[in-house]
């Protein structure tokens, strides 16, 4: 029998995988992809809670999270293109000028 906790554990697994990606990858594009993974993990637990409580409000929040993710990705990828033009690399380590 599938309970709420099953979905929450799946969401936690996905979030942890995304967190590992953010921390361990160097390429800024990979970091953005892992952030998407973490946002989706949050979406999964929102929908699971919406089903558990029998109310649609959680799904409204998922809608808003998707909108914010879309805006974030657009601006993030534009910054990535500017970074590739200015520095010539897309590694997060290449941006050193603000480092003490």
């Amino acid at each position: 029998m599938i309970t709420l906790n099953h979905y929450l554990i799946a969401s936690g697994l996905l979030f942890a995988i995304g967190l590992v990606g953010v921390v361990s990858r160097r390429n800024t594009l990979m970091i953005l992809l892992s952030v998407e993974l973490m946002l989706n993990a949050a979406n999964l637990s929102f929908v699971a809670f919406s089903r558990y409580l029998g109310h649609s409000t959680g799904q409204i929040f998922v809608f808003f999270i998707m909108l914010v993710a879309a805006a974030e990705v657009t601006v993030g990828l534009a910054i990535l293109i500017v970074m590739a033009r200015a520095v010539g690399k897309t590694d997060a380590d290449a941006l050193k000028s603000l480092r003490w």
Binding site: A70, A71, V75, L77, A78, I79, I81, V82
Partner: peptide
């Protein structure tokens, strides 16, 4: 928010 995202992306990428 989405409008701001679009304008921001265009401004950043075209400069």
């Amino acid at each position: 928010l989405v409008l701001v995202g679009i304008i921001g992306a265009v401004v950043l990428a075209k400069r």
